[in-house]
Amino acid sequence: MRSAVSESSTPTDVPPSLVEARDVRVSLQGTEILHGVSLTARPGEVVSLMGGNGSGKSTFVRAIVGAVPTTAGSIDLFGSPASPLARARLGYVPQRITAAGGVSATALEVVTSGLLGSRERDGRVGSRLRGLVPPRDAKARARAALASMGVEDLAKRDVSRLSGGQQQRVLIARALVRRPHLLILDEPMAGVDLESQVQFSHTLGHLKEEGVGIVVVLHELGALTRHIDRAVVLEHGCVTYDGVPPKDLGVHALPGHDHDHPHADPPVRDGSSLGLEAP
């Protein structure tokens, strides 16, 4: 595709990237938060995005989903520049404290709202303000998505009265109901109990087998460890590591997670420079 320009041009047997972000810069209220962040994810690949609080993980995924504008760099989704239509095959789980608005809404209603917007149908992409699927099918799909997160029984419950972990699972279901080709999750395991984490890990494994690409913001690899192909570590809005996930270690085991001394190092691609072998 567009990789012909890069010097490490990709062999033809490597599938095209689902997301390819290059040197993305983002400024919020006059302050540059991301200073040129790059990341790619291919079909069936699970990339964990890690880094300390305030390192820019959420800002970066929000740039990918179009919630904040970029000031420089480029983001390609499914081989073409990011646009509302290109987001048809994207599923997003924002980082948040609550799934509730001012009016109560049932879990089913929240999940069904995932079926709106740009959607893919019969291989063609289009934008719909009303649901893509007829209401009856939409309900069935939403219920199936809730079931895949093990919260089918909460369908009729008011989301504002669910526990934090239950709300989180509803929000994951809202992304899954879109049947995305690329899933972007911002700390999806926050507040989710261990049993549900393991269950979600199975769901993730299935999605991966189906060729879904996954970018997941995590503080520790935890229950998802065995599915993660690559870890990208952010520090102060720069990538400081991009490579095999550090085995069984959370990001806090990485050197320099302490933000008192800013990192100016160029991205390192070698696990050994992290001193992981040192006892």
Binding site: R62, L90, Y92, P94, G101, L116, R130
Partner: peptide
């Protein structure tokens, strides 16, 4: 449906296009 999505979770609504 669309107005619910936008007033309920603007960031997610944007991600859906």
């Amino acid at each position: 449906a669309a107005l619910f999505s936008v007033t309920h979770d603007q960031e997610f609504a944007r991600s859906t296009g």
